[in-house]
Design a protein around this nucleic acid. Structure first.
Length: 763
DNA sequence: GAGTTTGAAACT
DNA sequence: CAGTTTCAAACTC
């Protein structure tokens, strides 16, 4: 079973699934005191469906003798890395955006296999790793995570690192993370969104193991293009980095694994492996003697940790220990799924897990470092999983009522949606938490699953980006109560202002200062900044119930808010009708909710109407025309009659000139009035003492040089206005005199007010 | 603010 | 696909 099916990656919007970053990985840099993997060749980076040609093994041991391990027989063309350490600390893998760092704190044998951009944590399958562990005087510690896959996903913009910390059980207890032949535990770190910044490859050049001794920190970056040959049951699949800022390998916190979206390694596919020796961390709360800590330290990004069971593995209770040192602004969703319905337990690092509302959020993205707090309550629909995608104004939510793990273990059943990324019934939601805080993990012991469709959704749209807000799919046949709900980000903000949200937010997790900045897709060709800076007009629908595309709110994928509509159904209270309407619209036009203004063909304007207008009487020079309204010219696909909205159109030029002139006039008048007001106020402030002392100045006393200048500017502006509008001289004079009168009135009123204020003060 | 015009959306 | 109707925004007075 794939940890994350290829369909899942393909399904995710481009904004959050940047697969190019893999290929952007430069060749590794040899030397440098850090472990380096074999520089990748020009071979395209294999994706999930690709098959590497060779394998690369990296072993991280805790002893200098691990150099022998480093000399372990590498695969035909694989590079083997070894990082050893003598400390008995949890396995910590850290990385900046450009550096995958394996902190040498691992004593038990531990294998990380990285294949196809995957770092696979394996039990030490090789004797070298065991020997290396013995050489440091510690018993081999092996994780045993059969039947589980850990998926760590951070979705966001570039530069946000993933902090992954793997802690073993009690010291002296061997744990097996997996086996090359058992398709058991798989850990996948997926960073969605942004570009991978894995550029520097630190590892042993020439397919050699490198032992790092005496170093507090080891840096390893897997060459993504190096062929390998090993199927790794346990995989740390590292995807592109979300954010590289603020993360230093020298930090005392857990190291980080950063990478990019990696593809599932098929059985038999060569893979690079890293063998780690690790010591179990007794400080970690464990279940079944297995602990996994994932710590996105100092990363503004949000990390989703998903443990997905392998269908072929035995079902065992697993535990995940999440570190409490989650940086502010981070959000972690940890979901673990076991096979065959075996329960999964999650434990917080301080045994203070709290049950929270059955809400779960997956945050994708971190635009500009801004963080989203997307824990939202959906009172009417408690089983809501929220995903906020950067660049999209929608929150994709799928509602899942958990039945049995076995049913979820067969996502390819009758459902037409195909494989799903499924989360186990036990959810763990972590809100942003300061590093110094205590327990931060809140566990919702509800039978809920976050399911992300791994395949296109033929019922609605083949792509998330096409999903309209509020989309809910009918439950898959035999799949239980499964559905989708896509909630506009705007509405999430509204929800976050509700008492319910306050309750959820006031739990263990302090809400970030800035709750949320909505990321939106370009709306009608406008940049998000443009769309956000300009408040949406309230609709006035009366007959459409705001459930047809006549309604701009509905068409833009937003709930009506502060509108003037009547009988509005475009809200959560009428979610059923709304979803039905959405489906109807999509049935009629699959791209109904896509922006109408998009990029045109090459050579044409950057922005053009996707369908073109059909104007007949407006000449495409009024806002009736969608092209003109969007401030773009009509294109060849328009079917308008008598179009005057083209580049050389004199009417258009005149119109644009007039519009510009009017805008300039407005700006000038506004500036002049503002200046006059400020000057008057300033004068009043300066003359107040005189008034207070003198006991009464006449208003003309306030006509100072500054006031005169400002008044003259206003009069000149009025004269210009009269001239531009071709007013006759008499009318122009009248306008100027009127303006002069206004100025005088302002002066007099201000003076009188100042005098009155002064008198009141004196009293 | 009421009425008219306009063109997209919806419908047939 | 074309013609018609419905609808809400844009526009005019």
């Amino acid at each position: 079973m794939d940890v994350v099916s290829p369909e899942l990656n393909s399904l995710l919007p481009d904004e959050i699934m940047d697969t190019e970053a893999i290929e952007d990985l430069p060749p590794s840099q040899p030397g440098g005191g850090a472990v380096q993997s074999q520089p990748s060749d020009d071979t395209p980076v294999p994706m999930e469906t690709d098959t590497p040609a060779a394998s690369e093994h990296l072993s991280l041991c805790s002893d200098a003798t691990s150099a022998e391990h480093a000399k372990a027989p590498p695969t035909s063309s694989g590079a083997t890395l070894s990082i050893s350490t003598a400390s008995q600390l949890p396995i910590s893998i850290s990385s900046t955006s450009s550096l995958l760092t394996l902190k040498p704190r691992l004593t038990p044998p531990f294998t990380i296999s990285a294949a196809n951009h995957q770092i696979i944590l394996n039990k030490v399958a090789s004797a070298q790793a065991t020997e290396a562990a013995k050489s440091i005087g510690s018993q081999p510690q092996v994780f045993k995570q059969e039947g589980q896959k850990l998926l760590v996903t951070t979705i966001g913009k570039s530069g946000q690192p993933i902090m992954l910390q793997v802690a073993g059980g009690k010291p002296g207890v061997s744990q097996t993370l997996g086996d090359h032949k058992s398709q058991a535990p798989q850990f996948k770190v997926v960073t969605i969104g942004g570009r991978s910044e894995l550029k520097q490859v630190v590892g042993s050049a020439g397919n050699q193991l490198t032992t790092l001794q005496g170093q507090q920190l080891k840096a390893v970056q897997i060459a993504t293009k190096t062929p390998v040959s090993s199927a790794a049951p346990i995989k740390y699949i590292i995807t592109k980095t979300v954010n590289s800022k603020g993360l230093s390998p020298q930090t005392s916190v857990s190291p980080v694994i950063t990478g990019r979206v990696l593809t599932q390694t098929s059985p038999g596919i060569p893979s690079r492996t890293i063998t780690l020796s690790e010591t179990l961390n007794s400080n970690m709360q464990s279940i079944s003697g297995k602990k996994i800590a994932i710590s996105p330290l100092k990363s503004p990004s949000k990390v989703t940790v998903v443990s997905v069971a392998s269908p072929t593995s035995n079902a065992t209770q697993k535990s995940m220990t999440l570190p409490v040192n989650v940086a502010l602004g981070q959000q972690i969703l940890t979901v673990q799924q076991s096979t065959s319905g075996s329960p999964v337990k999650l434990a917080t690092g301080q045994n203070t897990a709290q049950n929270i509302k059955p809400v779960q959020s997956v945050t994708m993205g971190g635009v500009g470092g801004s963080q989203f707090k997307t824990i939202i309550p959906l009172g009417s629909q408690p089983n809501v999983q929220q995903i906020q995608v950067p660049g999209s104004r929608f929150h994709y939510v799928r509602l899942v009522t958990s039945t049995t793990a076995s049913s979820l273990g067969h996502p390819s059943g009758p459902s037409t949606r195909g494989p799903l990324l499924q989360l186990n019934p036990v959810k763990q939601v972590m809100a942003p938490k300061p590093l110094t805080s205590g327990a931060v993990v809140t566990t919702a012991q509800t039978q809920q699953r976050l399911i992300m469709p791994a395949t296109p959704l033929p019922q609605i749209q083949p792509n998330f980006t096409n999903l309209p807000p509020g989309t809910v799919l009918a439950p898959a046949p035999g799949g239980g109560n499964v559905g989708y709900a896509v909630v506009p980000a705007q509405y999430v903000t509204q929800l976050q202002q509700t008492p319910f949200v306050t309750l959820a937010s006031s739990s263990t997790f302090p809400a970030p200062a800035g709750v949320q900045t909505q990321a939106r897709l370009p709306l009608n060709g406008l940049s998000p900044a443009e769309t956000t800076s300009r408040p949406r007009k309230p609709c006035n629908c009366t007959k459409s119930q705001c459930l047809k595309l006549y309604c701009d709110c509905f068409a833009n994928g937003e709930f009506c808010n502060n509108c003037n509509c009547n009988n509005c159904f475009n809200n959560l209270e009428h979610e059923t009708e709304r979803l039905k309407a959405i489906k109807t619209c999509l049935d009629r036009n699959p791209e109904a909710f896509k922006p109408k203004i998009g990029k045109g063909k090459q050579g044409e304007s950057d922005r053009r109407h996707s369908k073109g207008c059909n104007c007949k009487r407006s000449g495409c020079l009024k806002n009736y025309c969608e092209c003109y309204e969007a401030k773009i010219m009509c294109s060849s696909i328009c079917k308008c009659i008598g179009c005057k909205n083209f580049e050389e159109s004199p009417e258009r030029k005149t119109l644009m000139h007039l519009a510009d002139a009017a805008e300039v006039r407005v700006q000038q008048q506004t500036a002049a009035k503002t200046k006059l007001s400020s000057q008057i106020s300033d004068l009043l402030m300066r003359t107040t003492p005189v008034i207070s002392s003198g006991g009464g100045r006449l208003p003309y006393t306030f006509v100072t040089k500054e006031v005169l200048e400002a008044t003259c500017e206003c009069l000149l502006e009025q004269a210009k206005k009269a001239e531009q509008t071709h007013q006759p001289q008499v009318e122009a004079e009248r306008m100027i005199l009127e303006e002069f009168g206004h100025c005088l009135m302002r002066i007099i009123n201000s003076a009188g007010k100042a005098k009155a204020d002064c008198a009141s003060i004196n009293c």
